[in-house]
Simulated scan of single mutants.
Amino acid sequence: MKKLKKIISQPVVIKAVQESRNSLDGTLSNLHTSLSGLTEHDVKERLASFGSNDVVHDKAPSAWLQLLLAFKNPFIFVLLALACVSFFTDYLIPLHNGEETSLSGISIIVVMVLLSGLLSFWQEYRSNKAAQALKSMISTT
């Protein structure tokens, strides 16, 4: 049984490629089975060792995680870097020198970041909901 576990626990693609090179008798021998199938005892033993053969559907991440991931975007990082530069050049340096300060450029960039992230989140959230609805309509046999 240990040898069988080692064979079955390999990635499916690699195992399939290896078994495709074997003869039918070799494959049946490697998998400890026969043309007539498994015995009831073997079925129970394999179910206990490997679990049932069920299709697992990926679950979409939570809405909060999707919202955070929506802001993980190179465009947003560039805009945030521009906002930081603008904060120093338009607000801090003029404030330190006693000149007139302006937060309008920073405000515009922050609004662009928020809009970009929220639009990205909304699209991703809706597409995940649609994918979940489609998966719920499919029954695997």
Rank of each mutant, 00 (worst) to 15 (best):
N97K: 11
L118R: 08
I108W: 14
F88E: 04
H96F: 06
E100L: 07
L67I: 07
I106L: 09
C84Y: 05
V85L: 13
P74R: 11
E100K: 02
I106P: 05
S104P: 02
G105T: 08
S86V: 02
L79G: 07
I93N: 01
V78E: 00
L65C: 11
L65K: 15
P74G: 12
F75V: 15
V85S: 08
P94T: 11
H96R: 06
F88I: 10
S107P: 00
D90F: 03
S86C: 09
F77I: 07
C84A: 12
P94R: 08
P74L: 13
I109D: 09
A81Q: 02
C84G: 11
N73H: 15
A70Q: 05
L67V: 02
E99T: 05
V78H: 01
L118F: 14
L118M: 15
L114C: 09
I109T: 02
S102P: 02
S86Q: 09
F77H: 08
S120F: 03
G117Y: 01
S107D: 03
L82E: 04
V110F: 07
F87R: 04
F71H: 01
I109G: 01
A81D: 05
A81S: 08
F77C: 10
A70L: 00
L114W: 02
I106A: 05
I109V: 09
I109H: 01
L69G: 14
P94W: 10
L103F: 06
I106E: 09
V113D: 00
K72W: 12
N97H: 02
F75H: 12
P74E: 10
N97T: 07
L118I: 02
L114R: 03
S104K: 11
L95S: 06
T89A: 09
V113S: 07
V111A: 13
M112Y: 13
D90Q: 12
V85K: 06
F77Y: 14
Q66T: 14
G117F: 01
Q66G: 14
P74Q: 08
V111C: 11
I109Y: 06
N73C: 12
E99W: 12
S102R: 06
L95Y: 02
L103I: 06
E99A: 15
F75D: 03
I76P: 10
L68H: 05
V110R: 04
S104D: 08
V78T: 04
V78D: 08
Y91I: 13
L79M: 09
F77D: 07
D90K: 08
L67K: 05
L69T: 14
L79Y: 04
L115P: 00
F87M: 07
L95T: 01
L115A: 15
L118A: 13
G117R: 01
I106V: 10
